[in-house]
Computed example of a mutant assay.
Amino acid sequence: MRPDVRDWLHQRTFSADSWYASELLAAKAERNATVSVVLPALDEERTVGTIVSTIRERLVERCPLVDELVVIDSGSVDRTAEVATAAGARVVHVDTVLPGHGCRPGKGEALWKSLHVTTGELVVFLDSDLIRFDHRFVIGLLGPLLTDSTIGYVKALYDRPLSTTEGIVPSGGGRVTELVARPLLNAFWPQLAGFVQPLSGEYAGRRTLLEEVPFVSGYGVEFGLLVDLLRRAGLNALAQVDLGVRRHSHQNDAALGRMAGQILQTALARRPGAGRPEGELLQFLRTGDGLEAVSWDVTVVERPPMRTLRDAEARAWRQA
């Protein structure tokens, strides 16, 4: 193991059990900080309500650690928006944010636009398909940011039980991580090899830092943020927190292949001297007539750092 990775693992890996909400509330008040929690959502009516109501009850009403709770709806056709609103979140449809810049499909677009409609100094991102959500996820992600000013970005690590036809496998579930993301990081950005779950959908950061980097529109957003934040802030500004166990729905292999394609696109675009790679992924289905080739566009689009957008809007306003 590289010495810098060994040192980072020792100094920048924490446990969510290290903090209580009450002590973080005191640290938040001392620093005059504000916290926004963002859930990107697409057809998650089954789970989003429980997550929102748990955060509101435990971390807004009982202990006001969270100031702003926002669900960014990416065009759900089910009752995601209604359920989230009833549970106590402010729901924002992604198409209504920065309409002059258009709208791209994908999770990264929702996260990027959330920076424009939230105000918290600290921003916590949570996937909205979590099962048996624990409010300590939020506490754990905020802990390093509220107690160490040198840390700017925190990712979750956890065990991921994998549901199979034979029951629950205690570990696993991170197939794209192990087959694509981890080999890429170890080969090209070995400083980041210590991240246990580099693609985790639960992470938090300081707004000042998040607004300095681009957001990839699709599933490559987590990979892109890690690489770009390493370049922007250095390894010591990044940390990870053990949240225990994370349960969520799982996708089939074909969907994971498309996810892997977007992550590969994101990685290749960040290699020194790299051009934009081809964005087509060919997959195959067996039909009654034989094999059918299905082409998918896995091209990712990078949204610029939100800071540059705000600066451009300010200049336009001064010149008007």
Score class of each variant (00 low, 15 high):
Glu121Met: 12
Gly234Asp: 02
Glu202Cys: 14
Leu115Trp: 15
Val169Glu: 04
Arg182Gln: 06
Arg231Thr: 09
Ser217Lys: 06
Val138Gly: 12
Ala255Glu: 13
Tyr203His: 15
Leu229Trp: 09
Val138Leu: 07
Ala260Asn: 04
Pro214Ile: 08
Ala187Asp: 03
Ser217Asn: 08
Arg206Phe: 12
Gln191Pro: 03
Val221Asn: 02
Arg206Pro: 11
Phe125Gly: 02
Ile131Asp: 03
Thr177Arg: 01
Gly143Thr: 10
Val213Thr: 12
Arg247Val: 11
Ala193Ser: 13
Gly167Arg: 07
Phe215Leu: 09
Val227Phe: 06
Phe188Gln: 05
Gln197Tyr: 04
Thr150Gly: 12
Leu238Lys: 10
Leu162Val: 13
Glu222Asn: 13
Phe125Glu: 01
Leu115Tyr: 14
Glu222Thr: 14
Leu209Met: 07
Val176Phe: 08
Ala187Arg: 15
Pro190Leu: 12
His250Tyr: 05
Phe188Ser: 05
Val196Asp: 05
Ala233Thr: 10
Leu130Arg: 01
Pro214Asp: 07
Pro198Ala: 04
Thr119Ile: 11
Glu178Leu: 14
Leu122Tyr: 11
His116Ala: 14
Phe125Ile: 15
Glu211Asn: 11
Thr118Trp: 11
Gln191Thr: 14
Ala254Gln: 15
Leu130His: 04
Val245Ser: 10
Arg136Gln: 05
His116Arg: 09
Tyr203Gly: 00
His135Thr: 13
Gly143Arg: 11
Met259Tyr: 13
Leu146Gln: 10
Leu256Pro: 12
Asp127Asn: 10
Ile151Asn: 07
Val196Ser: 05
Thr118Asn: 08
Ala254His: 15
Phe137Ala: 13
Ala233Glu: 09
Asp148Trp: 01
Ile139Arg: 04
Val138Thr: 11
His135Asn: 08
Val245Trp: 08
Leu235Tyr: 01
Leu115Pro: 03
Leu230His: 11
Ala181Pro: 09
Ala156Met: 14
Ala233Tyr: 05
Asp148Asn: 15
Trp189Asp: 02
Ser128Lys: 06
Asp242His: 14
His248Pro: 05
Tyr158Ser: 08
Arg246Ile: 13
Glu166Ala: 06
His116Ser: 12
Asp159Ile: 13
Leu185Gln: 08
Gly201Tyr: 03
Pro144Tyr: 00
Asp228Arg: 15
Leu226Trp: 03
Val241Trp: 00
Thr147Asp: 02
Thr208Asp: 12
Leu162Glu: 07
Ser249Asp: 02
Leu179Trp: 13
Arg206Lys: 09
Val221Cys: 07
Gly257Lys: 07
Arg258Gln: 14
His135Ile: 12
Leu226Ser: 11
Pro161Gly: 03
Arg132Leu: 06
Asn236His: 14
Thr164Glu: 03
Ser249Arg: 04
Leu238Ser: 10
Phe215Asn: 04
Tyr203Leu: 13
Ala193Pro: 04
Leu122Ser: 03
Gln197Trp: 01
His250Leu: 04
Leu146Ser: 04
Glu202Phe: 05
Gly234Asn: 02
Pro161Thr: 05
Leu184Gln: 08
Thr165Asn: 11
Asn252Val: 00
Asp127Leu: 06
Phe133Glu: 02
Gly172Cys: 04
Ala181Gln: 01
Leu235Arg: 08
Gly257Cys: 11
Val180Arg: 03
Gly244Asn: 02
Ser163Leu: 13
Ser149His: 00
Ala233Pro: 09
Leu157Val: 15
Ser171Asn: 05
